[in-house]
Simulated scan of single mutants.
Amino acid sequence: MIKAVIFDMGGTLEDIYNTPETRLENAKTLLEYMKRHGITLECDPAEFSEKVIRSYGDYKKFSDENNIELMPFEVWDKYRLRDYPEIDRRILQAISERLTHIWETHFHHRELRPHAVEMLTALQKAGYKLGVISNTPSLVQVLWTLHEYKIFDFFEYVGLSSLHGFKKPDPILFQIAARDLNVQAAECAYVGDTIDKDVKGARAAGYGMTFRIKSYAEEEQRLTGDETEADYLIKDLSEIVTILEKEKGVKAYE
């Protein structure tokens, strides 16, 4: 029987996407913040944005291939700002988490999915333990965003790749979440939007149920066989409650 429901963050609990406008605003905000701390880069924001995005792409490739999440300073030093050796690295180290937070909250447009609060309320009322596992380069952004959405208090556990040093689909993230929630892996359901990171990671950890919600990443999915798909493919978070009601026999929306 499922006793805990654990969620991915970006693309699952929230819709997340970026546009040329958000990318440019992100670059301007980063440059302004660095200048405030004595790091002045005389460059065009659009050009800066393209260069940093390209460098971050190399980090993402390394990170995804090895399921490793580096600390914020390492990401900025070795990847995002590697083309700017003139930057004072001591200052960069001191502000790297803040730069990461800016990136995550300005580069992307984020919005809580419809029915998220009602779904979480219903699951909590039905007695499920709730948690979050998120791949993120920031140490604080997910926690900050959960507070912004006013849903932080629903969760007994929040696990971040930036804190663990590993990232999904490494099963250790899913195993730690189950143990910290004091349940068996087979008693956990995981809700994510990707096959490679969410579905495969949860299954490798022995989770009893997987959900995949359609998201901006849908076009990136590449099925290699039916065994890679989630147990349930959903379009709305409210479907989770209906499905679990049938499994547990609890009318969570009453």
Rank of each mutant, 00 (worst) to 15 (best):
P137E: 01
K150H: 13
A126W: 14
R98V: 00
I195F: 04
S134D: 06
A186I: 13
M119R: 04
V117A: 10
T121L: 11
F107N: 01
D170T: 04
N135R: 06
V142M: 10
V158P: 01
L112D: 00
H147T: 12
H109I: 08
K200T: 15
E148G: 11
S96A: 15
A204W: 03
A178I: 09
T105V: 10
G165I: 04
D170K: 08
Y157I: 06
N182K: 15
L139N: 10
D180Y: 13
L143H: 12
L143E: 05
R203P: 05
H115I: 06
R90A: 13
A204K: 07
Y207F: 15
Y207P: 05
L139I: 12
E218Q: 14
A122S: 15
H147S: 14
G127F: 01
L120V: 12
S138A: 14
T210H: 09
R113Y: 03
L92C: 13
Q124T: 11
H115F: 14
E118T: 02
G165C: 09
R212L: 11
I176K: 07
R90M: 11
T194R: 13
D153R: 09
I95H: 05
A202I: 07
M119D: 02
N135K: 02
V132Y: 09
H108K: 10
D198L: 13
H106D: 02
G201I: 01
T210Q: 00
G192C: 12
I95E: 03
N135I: 04
H115P: 04
Q184H: 14
E156Y: 07
A186K: 15
T121Q: 15
R90K: 14
A202M: 11
A217L: 15
L173C: 05
T105I: 09
Y149Q: 09
G192I: 08
S134P: 04
D198Q: 07
R179W: 07
R203D: 06
A189C: 12
L181M: 15
K197V: 01
R90S: 14
S138R: 06
T210M: 11
G208I: 03
A202H: 03
K150G: 06
E118A: 08
I102M: 12
V191F: 14
S162A: 15
F174M: 01
K168A: 00
